[in-house]
C-alpha cells in the first residue's frame, strides 16, 4: 500500500486542479473574438489586396488565428502541460511539409520538363490541359448552352 501511495504522489495532480477552474469569462471573450474575426474574414474577402494568392493567404492567416484561439481556449491547450500541444503542433509540421514539398514539385516541373512550358504571366510552372465546361453534357442539350464553344471544343475528351 505504501508503494501505491508513493506512486500516486509522483503523478502530478496539476491537471485535475486546473480543470476545476471556472473559465466562463475566457470562453465568452473567445466566442466574441471569433465572431469579430469572422466578420473581418468576410470584409477582407471584399477587398482586393493585389492578387488572388494574396487574398487567399490573408484569409488563411485570419483562419489560422481563429483556429489557434479555438485550440488554446476551447481545447484548453493554454492551461495544459505541453504534451498535447506537442502532438498537435507536430501534426501541423507534417502538414506543412506535405504541402510545401508538393508545391516545390509543381512549381519546378517546368524547369525540369521543358515539354510543359509555363505560359507568360502565369506563376504556376505546371499547366494542365484545358478543361471542358462540363464532363458529360446534360441530357437534352447536345450543345453546351453557356460559355465559349471554341474553348469547350478545345478541351473536349478527344484532346
Amino acid at each position: 500500500m505504501s508503494v501505491d501511495n508513493e506512486a500516486m504522489e509522483t503523478i502530478p495532480h496539476h491537471g485535475e486542479e486546473v480543470h476545476t477552474h471556472n473559465h466562463t469569462k475566457w470562453y465568452v471573450a473567445n466566442i466574441l473574438t471569433l465572431f469579430v474575426l469572422t466578420a473581418i474574414t468576410v470584409l477582407a474577402a471584399g477587398v482586393n489586396f493585389g492578387s488572388n494568392t494574396v487574398n487567399l493567404m490573408i484569409a488563411m492567416a485570419i483562419a489560422t488565428v481563429k483556429a489557434s484561439l479555438v485550440a488554446l481556449i476551447f481545447m484548453h491547450l493554454l492551461w495544459e502541460r505541453g504534451m498535447n500541444a506537442i502532438i498537435f503542433l507536430s501534426s501541423l509540421f507534417f502538414v506543412a511539409l506535405f504541402m510545401s514539398f508538393t508545391f516545390f514539385d509543381l512549381e519546378t516541373r517546368a524547369k525540369i520538363e521543358p515539354s510543359t512550358p509555363s505560359e507568360p504571366g502565369v506563376s504556376a510552372g505546371y499547366q494542365p490541359a484545358p478543361l471542358p465546361i462540363y464532363v458529360v453534357p446534360p441530357k437534352g442539350s447536345p450543345e453546351p448552352t453557356g460559355g465559349d464553344p471554341a474553348k469547350a471544343a478545345e478541351g473536349s475528351p478527344a484532346h
Binding site: P130, L131, P132, I133, Y134, V135, V136, P137, P138, K139, S141, P144, T145, G146, G147, K151, A152, G155
Partner: peptide, 17 residues
C-alpha cells in the same frame, strides 16, 4: 461533383472542379 456536373449556365471551363 465530377462528371455529375450538368449546370447549363457555366461560363468558365472547370467549374465542376
Amino acid at each position: 461533383l465530377g462528371n455529375l456536373f450538368s449546370y447549363k449556365g457555366a461560363s468558365v471551363p472547370g467549374e465542376y472542379l
